[in-house]
Amino acid sequence: MTTQSRLVPYLYIAPLLLLLAFVFGYPLVRIFEFSFKMVRGIDGPWIGLRNYQLVLGQDLFWESVLHNLQLLLAIPAMVVISLIVSVLLYERVAGWRLYRIIVFVPFVLAIPIIAVVMKRMFQFSGPVNEVLRWLSLDFLALDWIGSSDVALWTVMILIVWRESALGIILFLARLLSLDESMIEAAKIEGANWWQRLRYIILPQMRGVIEFFVVVSVITMLAAVFAYVFVMGGGRGGPGTATMVVELYIFNALIRTSLPGIASAASVLLFLVSVLLIFPLFRARRRVRKLEA
């Protein structure tokens, strides 16, 4: 092969590479650059690591990180719910077609839409508390979105409800690709529902579960903005009870006119996300391998 012919394929993909470099690479470089500057308007003087010092020294940033980490607690619940529902759908319980539509709906609807609806539901005088009071369960009628002690958990309920739909879609797709003869054989051998799940189905779903867990970790750390923005009154409230790193960045950039601070926090979040992408790729490889 001549040098010229070796270069040809690269020339074919060069336009796309250039486009990608412009769309993703340029902003990334600018964000890294801004994180070392005190930006006012569209540029500013170089200040070294000062932005990082300020971000890492601010209680609010660490509080935001803590809230992101707290949201990780939702993942086991999401996995369990997704597994149970997908297996039930796979086993075609009575009315499974209707149930399938119902459980997929949250994922089809935009987050702001369901968050606005949930917010109304969870108001102190909203339908959820009205039902609880009607059932004489007044002690459970909490100030779901108005109390700092409860608000993040309420956001978590919403996240679990919606993100589990993704888990159900993924798990069901995997279930539908399983070799049914193995499950049938187990049934004939007398294995009950739990035994079939535990010893036949789950081992074959390990890859997709890992994939879902890694995606969910990334979601909890870097993609919950829409949830907290709507549920937390646009400010991570009440107080700072639902503040997360994304909202911290948004506030620094948009509301407090500190692009340098926003960039420094973005770089930190970016680095954490990059670290998480490696296990994601590994999980995807495993899924493909198992499916093959």
């Binding site: 100030d143 700092s148 009440p238 509301r255 407090t256 006119s257």
Partner: peptide, 21 residues
């Protein structure tokens, strides 16, 4: 009010007093 004070103090103080925090 500077934006930073608005977000970090002006808004949260009222919210936290009202909920008794």
């Amino acid at each position: 009010v500077p934006g930073q004070f608005y977000e970090r103090a002006a808004i949260p103080t009222g919210q936290q007093i009202v909920q008794g925090a």
